[in-house]
C-alpha cells in the first residue's frame, strides 16, 4: 500500500513537472479590478455595447471637417481626371522653412523601407530582388520620369496610392505628406547629376 502511494506520488510530480510550460498565455488576475480597468471607454475598446444601447458613436471624423491645425483638404478625387489635374497643385509649404530633418525622419520611417535610404528604389523590402517585395520600388533619385514628376502628382499618389503603393493618408497628415515631398524634391535636384554619373559608371 505504502509502495503504491509513493509510486503514485512520484508519478504525479513527474507529470506536473513535464506538463508545466513556461509560456504564459494567461494575463492573471488583479487585486482591485475597479481601479485597474477603466470605466471610461479606452482606445480600441469595443463600442458594440454603445451601438446596442442606441448611443450614436462615430469612429471617423464627420466628412468634410478639418482638424484644428490641419491643412485644407486636397481637392481632387482618386480617378484619372484627378491624377491629371494633380500636376497643377503647388506645394503649399514654405519650402525654405520646412524642417528637413523631421522630413527626412518621416521619409525614412514611412518610405525608406521600399524606396531606400538613398531614394534609389532599393530599400530593405526589395534588396536587389532578394527581399519579399515582388516588384521593384521606383527610384526617386536618378530616374528622369520621377525627377520630372510634379509635386502635386506625387501628393496625389501619396494620398490615394498608386499601382503597388498604398495610400499613406492614414499614416501621414497633409502637412507631413508635403514635408516628405519637399524632402524628396530637395534630394532630386542636388543628387540627380551624381546619381546619373554613378549609374553610367556602373553600366560601363
Amino acid at each position: 500500500m505504502k509502495r503504491i502511494s509513493i509510486f503514485f506520488g512520484v508519478l504525479t510530480t513527474a507529470v506536473v513537472l513535464i506538463g508545466c510550460s513556461n509560456v504564459r498565455r494567461d494575463p492573471g488576475t488583479v487585486y482591485m479590478p475597479d481601479m485597474s480597468y477603466s470605466r471610461a471607454y479606452e482606445t480600441y475598446a469595443s463600442t458594440e455595447a454603445l451601438t446596442q444601447a442606441g448611443v450614436n458613436y462615430t469612429a471617423t471624423p464627420v466628412s468634410g471637417t478639418i482638424a484644428r491645425g490641419e491643412m485644407a483638404a486636397y481637392p481632387y478625387k482618386n480617378d484619372s481626371a484627378g491624377y491629371a489635374m494633380s500636376a497643377s497643385v503647388k506645394n503649399p509649404l514654405d519650402v525654405a522653412a520646412v524642417d528637413l530633418k523631421e522630413a527626412e525622419r518621416l521619409y525614412l520611417v514611412n518610405c525608406g523601407i521600399c524606396h531606400g535610404k538613398k531614394l534609389d528604389g532599393n530599400g530593405p523590402l526589395w534588396n536587389d530582388g532578394n527581399g519579399p517585395y515582388p516588384s521593384k520600388p521606383i527610384a526617386l533619385v536618378g530616374d528622369a520620369k520621377y525627377e520630372a514628376m510634379a509635386e502635386g502628382t506625387m501628393f496625389h499618389s501619396l494620398t490615394y496610392g498608386k499601382n503597388a503603393m498604398g495610400s499613406y493618408a492614414s499614416q501621414l497628415s497633409t502637412k507631413q505628406r508635403w514635408m516628405v515631398i519637399t524632402y524628396v524634391k530637395s534630394k532630386q535636384g542636388a543628387k540627380a547629376a551624381a546619381a546619373a554619373a554613378d549609374s553610367t559608371a556602373k553600366s560601363m
Binding site: 509560456v23 504564459r24 498565455r25 494575463p27 492573471g28 488576475t29 488583479v30 487585486y31
Partner: peptide, 12 residues
Amino acid sequence: IGMGRQKDYQPE
C-alpha cells in the same frame, strides 16, 4: 507581489 503584473505574458 506578482498579482496584477503580467511579466512574460505572451498571448496567442
